[in-house]
Simulated assay, not measured.
Amino acid sequence: MEKSKGDIVEAGGLYSQRHIPEKIALALRRWDKQSAVLQYSYMGLVLAGAISSFMVPVVVGVVDEMFIRILSSISGFSITIISAFGLKEKSNEMRAAYAKLRARLMKYEHHTDYTVADLVNDFSSISDGLSEIKGDGLKADPRKALE
Rank of each mutant, 00 (worst) to 15 (best):
R69D: 07
E2I: 15
R18S: 05
D128P: 10
E22D: 11
S125C: 03
I24V: 08
K107C: 14
D32S: 11
G137I: 08
V120Q: 00
L28P: 02
W31E: 02
L26N: 02
P57I: 02
R102H: 07
H110S: 13
K88M: 15
L71G: 00
S83A: 15
V46P: 00
K134G: 01
M55W: 00
D122Y: 04
G135F: 04
I24F: 00
G13W: 09
A97Y: 03
V56Y: 01
F85Q: 12
V120H: 00
S131E: 12
V63M: 02
A25S: 08
A50I: 13
L119V: 06
M43V: 11
K5Y: 14
M94P: 03
S131I: 11
L38C: 08
A27D: 04
M106P: 03
V58T: 04
G86H: 03
L105V: 10
A84T: 15
I126T: 08
A99M: 11
G76R: 00
V120R: 03
M106A: 13
L146P: 00
Y42E: 06
A103T: 13
S35Y: 13
V60M: 09
A97M: 08
L87R: 11
W31V: 07
Y108K: 05
K90A: 14
H19E: 10
K88T: 15
W31L: 07
M106I: 13
G76D: 03
Q34G: 08
L47M: 15
V9N: 09
S131T: 10
K90M: 15
S91D: 08
G135H: 03
M94N: 04
A96F: 05
G135M: 06
I81H: 01
R143N: 03
F77H: 05
I20S: 04
S125Y: 06
Q39H: 10
Y42D: 05
G61I: 09
V46F: 07
V56K: 03
G86M: 07
K5T: 09
V37Y: 11
S41W: 02
D128H: 15
Y15C: 09
I74T: 02
Q34P: 00
V60F: 07
E2P: 08
T112Q: 06
Y40A: 13
K33G: 10
A50M: 14
I24Y: 01
R18Y: 06
M94H: 04
D128W: 12
H110E: 14
S131P: 12
F85E: 11
N92G: 12
E2L: 13
P57T: 02
A36I: 12
I70H: 04
A140P: 02
K5H: 14
I74M: 01
K33D: 08
K134T: 02
